[in-house]
Protein backbone atom coordinates (compact mmCIF):
# COMPACT_ATOMS: atom_id res chain seq x y z
CA UNK A 1 0.00 0.00 0.00
CA UNK A 2 2.95 2.32 0.60
CA UNK A 3 3.91 1.97 -3.04
CA UNK A 4 0.35 2.83 -4.14
CA UNK A 5 0.28 5.87 -1.87
CA UNK A 6 3.64 6.98 -3.23
CA UNK A 7 2.48 6.62 -6.84
CA UNK A 8 -0.67 8.55 -6.00
CA UNK A 9 1.44 11.34 -4.51
CA UNK A 10 3.60 11.37 -7.63
CA UNK A 11 0.63 11.58 -9.95
CA UNK A 12 -1.07 14.40 -8.14
CA UNK A 13 2.09 16.49 -7.75
CA UNK A 14 2.80 17.15 -11.43
CA UNK A 15 0.99 19.56 -13.71
CA UNK A 16 0.68 17.17 -16.64
CA UNK A 17 -1.93 15.21 -14.65
CA UNK A 18 -4.09 18.29 -14.35
CA UNK A 19 -3.58 19.22 -17.99
CA UNK A 20 -4.71 15.82 -19.24
CA UNK A 21 -7.67 15.72 -16.86
CA UNK A 22 -8.58 19.27 -17.87
CA UNK A 23 -8.49 18.22 -21.49
CA UNK A 24 -10.94 15.41 -20.71
CA UNK A 25 -13.17 17.85 -18.83
CA UNK A 26 -12.99 20.26 -21.77
CA UNK A 27 -14.21 17.51 -24.07
CA UNK A 28 -17.22 17.06 -21.83
CA UNK A 29 -18.00 20.78 -21.88
CA UNK A 30 -17.59 20.81 -25.64
CA UNK A 31 -20.05 17.91 -25.98
CA UNK A 32 -22.61 19.86 -23.94
CA UNK A 33 -22.15 22.94 -26.09
CA UNK A 34 -22.64 20.86 -29.22
CA UNK A 35 -25.79 19.40 -27.66
CA UNK A 36 -27.21 22.91 -27.27
CA UNK A 37 -26.39 23.50 -30.90
CA UNK A 38 -28.09 20.25 -31.93
CA UNK A 39 -31.19 21.06 -29.90
CA UNK A 40 -31.31 24.40 -31.67
CA UNK A 41 -30.99 22.73 -35.08
CA UNK A 42 -33.61 20.14 -34.13
CA UNK A 43 -36.13 22.84 -33.46
CA UNK A 44 -35.72 24.15 -37.02
CA UNK A 45 -35.98 20.80 -38.79
CA UNK A 46 -38.95 19.40 -40.64
CA UNK A 47 -40.52 16.24 -39.28
CA UNK A 48 -39.05 13.95 -41.97
CA UNK A 49 -35.53 15.37 -41.49
CA UNK A 50 -35.82 14.79 -37.74
CA UNK A 51 -36.19 11.05 -38.38
CA UNK A 52 -32.50 10.84 -39.45
CA UNK A 53 -31.13 13.26 -36.88
CA UNK A 54 -29.40 11.28 -34.14
CA UNK A 55 -27.80 12.38 -30.89
CA UNK A 56 -25.81 9.21 -30.36
CA UNK A 57 -22.56 10.10 -32.23
CA UNK A 58 -22.24 13.21 -30.11
CA UNK A 59 -22.87 11.32 -26.87
CA UNK A 60 -20.11 8.85 -27.74
CA UNK A 61 -17.61 11.59 -28.50
CA UNK A 62 -16.93 12.23 -24.80
CA UNK A 63 -15.70 8.77 -23.86
CA UNK A 64 -13.82 8.39 -27.14
CA UNK A 65 -11.83 11.61 -26.65
CA UNK A 66 -11.36 11.00 -22.93
CA UNK A 67 -9.68 7.70 -23.79
CA UNK A 68 -6.94 9.59 -25.61
CA UNK A 69 -6.53 12.15 -22.81
CA UNK A 70 -6.16 9.46 -20.17
CA UNK A 71 -3.90 7.35 -22.36
CA UNK A 72 -1.60 10.38 -22.50
CA UNK A 73 -1.76 10.53 -18.71
CA UNK A 74 -0.80 6.84 -18.57
CA UNK A 75 2.12 7.35 -20.94
CA UNK A 76 3.44 10.39 -19.06
CA UNK A 77 3.17 8.67 -15.68
CA UNK A 78 5.99 6.41 -16.86
CA UNK A 79 7.96 8.25 -19.53
CA UNK A 80 8.39 11.38 -17.41
CA UNK A 81 10.37 9.15 -15.06
CA UNK A 82 12.48 7.71 -17.84
CA UNK A 83 13.09 11.15 -19.33
CA UNK A 84 14.37 12.60 -16.06
CA UNK A 85 16.10 9.45 -14.83
CA UNK A 86 13.84 9.43 -11.78
CA UNK A 87 12.89 5.85 -12.59
CA UNK A 88 16.16 4.83 -10.94
CA UNK A 89 15.14 6.59 -7.76
CA UNK A 90 11.77 4.88 -7.90
CA UNK A 91 13.31 1.45 -8.37
CA UNK A 92 15.83 2.14 -5.61
CA UNK A 93 13.21 2.98 -3.01
CA UNK A 94 10.87 0.19 -4.12
CA UNK A 95 13.21 -2.55 -5.38
CA UNK A 96 10.42 -4.97 -6.25
CA UNK A 97 9.67 -3.88 -9.75
CA UNK A 98 6.47 -5.82 -10.11
CA UNK A 99 5.19 -3.90 -7.11
CA UNK A 100 6.14 -0.57 -8.66
CA UNK A 101 4.27 -1.41 -11.85
CA UNK A 102 1.24 -2.77 -9.99
CA UNK A 103 1.08 0.37 -7.85
CA UNK A 104 1.32 2.62 -10.90
CA UNK A 105 -1.33 0.56 -12.70
CA UNK A 106 -3.66 0.77 -9.69
CA UNK A 107 -3.32 4.55 -9.48
CA UNK A 108 -3.44 5.30 -13.20
CA UNK A 109 -6.25 2.78 -13.75
CA UNK A 110 -8.38 4.17 -10.93
CA UNK A 111 -7.93 7.79 -11.96
CA UNK A 112 -8.71 6.90 -15.58
CA UNK A 113 -11.75 4.86 -14.59
CA UNK A 114 -13.19 7.70 -12.53
CA UNK A 115 -12.43 10.29 -15.20
CA UNK A 116 -13.63 8.02 -17.99
CA UNK A 117 -16.94 7.24 -16.30
CA UNK A 118 -17.44 10.89 -15.43
CA UNK A 119 -16.93 12.05 -19.00
CA UNK A 120 -18.72 9.16 -20.70
CA UNK A 121 -21.76 8.99 -18.43
CA UNK A 122 -21.65 12.76 -18.08
CA UNK A 123 -21.81 13.17 -21.85
CA UNK A 124 -24.78 10.82 -22.04
CA UNK A 125 -26.77 12.34 -19.20
CA UNK A 126 -25.69 15.87 -20.03
CA UNK A 127 -26.77 15.72 -23.65
CA UNK A 128 -30.10 14.16 -22.68
CA UNK A 129 -30.62 16.96 -20.21
CA UNK A 130 -29.79 19.59 -22.80
CA UNK A 131 -32.10 18.26 -25.49
CA UNK A 132 -34.86 17.80 -22.93
CA UNK A 133 -38.06 16.25 -24.27
CA UNK A 134 -37.16 16.61 -27.94
CA UNK A 135 -37.85 13.10 -29.30
CA UNK A 136 -34.52 12.32 -31.01
CA UNK A 137 -35.04 9.03 -32.89
CA UNK A 138 -32.17 7.25 -31.09
CA UNK A 139 -33.10 8.44 -27.61
CA UNK A 140 -36.29 6.48 -27.19
CA UNK A 141 -34.87 4.09 -24.60
CA UNK A 142 -34.88 4.87 -20.91
CA UNK A 143 -31.77 6.25 -19.22
CA UNK A 144 -31.39 3.01 -17.27
CA UNK A 145 -31.43 1.05 -20.51
CA UNK A 146 -28.68 3.06 -22.23
CA UNK A 147 -26.55 3.80 -19.18
CA UNK A 148 -24.56 0.49 -19.04
CA UNK A 149 -23.41 1.09 -22.60
CA UNK A 150 -21.79 4.37 -21.57
CA UNK A 151 -20.42 2.86 -18.38
CA UNK A 152 -18.57 0.29 -20.52
CA UNK A 153 -17.16 3.08 -22.68
CA UNK A 154 -16.02 4.75 -19.44
CA UNK A 155 -14.27 1.55 -18.40
CA UNK A 156 -12.53 1.38 -21.78
CA UNK A 157 -10.93 4.72 -20.92
CA UNK A 158 -9.11 2.96 -18.09
CA UNK A 159 -8.02 0.24 -20.54
CA UNK A 160 -6.52 2.90 -22.79
CA UNK A 161 -4.73 4.52 -19.86
CA UNK A 162 -3.18 1.20 -18.83
CA UNK A 163 -2.25 0.53 -22.43
CA UNK A 164 -0.51 3.90 -22.58
CA UNK A 165 1.29 3.20 -19.31
CA UNK A 166 2.51 -0.20 -20.48
CA UNK A 167 3.68 1.22 -23.81
CA UNK A 168 5.55 3.86 -21.82
CA UNK A 169 7.40 1.15 -19.89
CA UNK A 170 8.11 -0.88 -23.02
CA UNK A 171 9.27 2.03 -25.20
CA UNK A 172 10.69 4.30 -22.46
CA UNK A 173 10.03 7.25 -24.74
CA UNK A 174 7.22 9.79 -24.55
CA UNK A 175 7.13 10.34 -28.30
CA UNK A 176 7.21 6.65 -29.13
CA UNK A 177 4.50 5.72 -26.65
CA UNK A 178 2.23 8.64 -27.62
CA UNK A 179 2.49 7.86 -31.31
CA UNK A 180 1.70 4.21 -30.61
CA UNK A 181 -1.32 5.12 -28.52
CA UNK A 182 -2.73 7.49 -31.13
CA UNK A 183 -2.09 4.85 -33.77
CA UNK A 184 -4.08 2.23 -31.87
CA UNK A 185 -6.75 4.71 -30.85
CA UNK A 186 -7.64 6.06 -34.25
CA UNK A 187 -5.22 5.50 -37.11
CA UNK A 188 -5.24 1.71 -37.06
CA UNK A 189 -9.08 1.45 -37.01
CA UNK A 190 -9.22 3.76 -40.04
CA UNK A 191 -6.70 1.60 -41.89
CA UNK A 192 -8.52 -1.58 -40.91
CA UNK A 193 -11.77 -0.12 -42.24
CA UNK A 194 -10.13 0.01 -45.68
CA UNK A 195 -9.26 -3.69 -45.68
CA UNK A 196 -11.07 -5.84 -48.26
CA UNK A 197 -14.20 -7.67 -47.20
CA UNK A 198 -14.62 -9.59 -44.93
CA UNK A 199 -11.38 -8.69 -43.21
CA UNK A 200 -12.38 -5.13 -42.50
CA UNK A 201 -15.22 -6.34 -40.35
CA UNK A 202 -13.29 -9.19 -38.75
CA UNK A 203 -10.28 -7.14 -37.76
CA UNK A 204 -12.51 -4.15 -37.09
CA UNK A 205 -14.26 -6.19 -34.42
CA UNK A 206 -11.14 -6.52 -32.29
CA UNK A 207 -10.09 -2.87 -32.44
CA UNK A 208 -10.12 -1.38 -28.93
CA UNK A 209 -12.77 1.16 -29.90
CA UNK A 210 -15.07 -1.57 -31.20
CA UNK A 211 -15.23 -3.50 -27.95
CA UNK A 212 -17.54 -1.44 -25.70
CA UNK A 213 -20.28 -1.55 -28.32
CA UNK A 214 -19.97 -5.31 -28.71
CA UNK A 215 -19.93 -5.85 -24.96
CA UNK A 216 -23.16 -3.86 -24.79
CA UNK A 217 -24.53 -5.93 -27.68
CA UNK A 218 -24.96 -2.92 -29.94
CA UNK A 219 -24.69 -3.00 -33.74
CA UNK A 220 -21.75 -1.19 -35.33
CA UNK A 221 -23.56 -0.39 -38.57
CA UNK A 222 -22.89 3.31 -38.53
CA UNK A 223 -19.23 3.05 -37.43
CA UNK A 224 -15.90 2.02 -38.89
CA UNK A 225 -15.80 -0.95 -36.53
CA UNK A 226 -17.04 -4.50 -36.84
CA UNK A 227 -19.46 -6.23 -34.48
CA UNK A 228 -18.77 -9.93 -34.89
CA UNK A 229 -17.85 -10.71 -31.27
CA UNK A 230 -20.37 -11.87 -28.69
CA UNK A 231 -20.36 -9.73 -25.51
CA UNK A 232 -18.26 -12.17 -23.47
CA UNK A 233 -15.55 -12.48 -26.09
CA UNK A 234 -15.48 -8.71 -26.55
CA UNK A 235 -15.06 -8.26 -22.80
CA UNK A 236 -12.19 -10.77 -22.80
CA UNK A 237 -10.47 -8.94 -25.67
CA UNK A 238 -10.88 -5.62 -23.85
CA UNK A 239 -9.35 -7.12 -20.72
CA UNK A 240 -6.51 -8.49 -22.83
CA UNK A 241 -5.79 -4.99 -24.18
CA UNK A 242 -5.23 -3.91 -20.58
CA UNK A 243 -3.45 -6.94 -19.19
CA UNK A 244 -1.25 -8.37 -21.96
CA UNK A 245 0.78 -5.17 -22.47
CA UNK A 246 0.91 -4.78 -18.68
CA UNK A 247 2.41 -8.24 -18.29
CA UNK A 248 4.90 -7.58 -21.07
CA UNK A 249 5.82 -4.32 -19.37
CA UNK A 250 6.27 -6.12 -16.05
CA UNK A 251 8.49 -8.68 -17.71
CA UNK A 252 10.60 -6.01 -19.44
CA UNK A 253 10.85 -3.88 -16.31
CA UNK A 254 12.04 -6.74 -14.13
CA UNK A 255 14.53 -8.00 -16.69
CA UNK A 256 16.14 -4.75 -17.77
CA UNK A 257 18.92 -2.85 -16.10
CA UNK A 258 17.39 0.42 -14.97
Amino acid sequence: MDAVAAEWWKLRSVRSTYWTLSAAAAVFVFVLLLAFQMAHIWDGLSVERRADFTLRPLQELGGWAAALCLAVLGVLSVTSEYRSGMIRTTLTVVPRRGRVLAAKAAVVGTVALVAGEAVSIGSFLGTRLVVGDRPFPDQGASIAHDLPDFAIVGASVAVFALLGMSLGVLLRSTAGALVSVVFLWHVLPLLVFQLPEPWNERVGSVMPGALPGQIAGRSADSSIYGDLLPPGAAAAVMLAYALVPLMLAGFALSRRDA
Binding site: A3, A5, W9, K10, E81, S84, M86
Partner: peptide, 17 residues
Protein backbone atom coordinates in the same frame (compact mmCIF):
# COMPACT_ATOMS: atom_id res chain seq x y z
CA UNK B 1 14.09 14.68 -10.59
CA UNK B 2 10.87 15.80 -12.26
CA UNK B 3 11.29 19.53 -12.79
CA UNK B 4 7.58 20.20 -12.36
CA UNK B 5 7.36 18.71 -8.91
CA UNK B 6 7.84 20.77 -5.77
CA UNK B 7 10.70 19.87 -3.45
CA UNK B 8 8.28 18.94 -0.66
CA UNK B 9 6.32 16.65 -2.98
CA UNK B 10 9.47 14.99 -4.29
CA UNK B 11 10.57 14.06 -0.79
CA UNK B 12 6.96 13.39 0.16
CA UNK B 13 6.38 10.57 -2.29
CA UNK B 14 9.77 9.11 -1.47
CA UNK B 15 8.96 9.12 2.24
CA UNK B 16 5.53 7.65 1.60
CA UNK B 17 6.97 4.78 -0.43
Amino acid sequence: VHGGRRAFDHLGWLARS
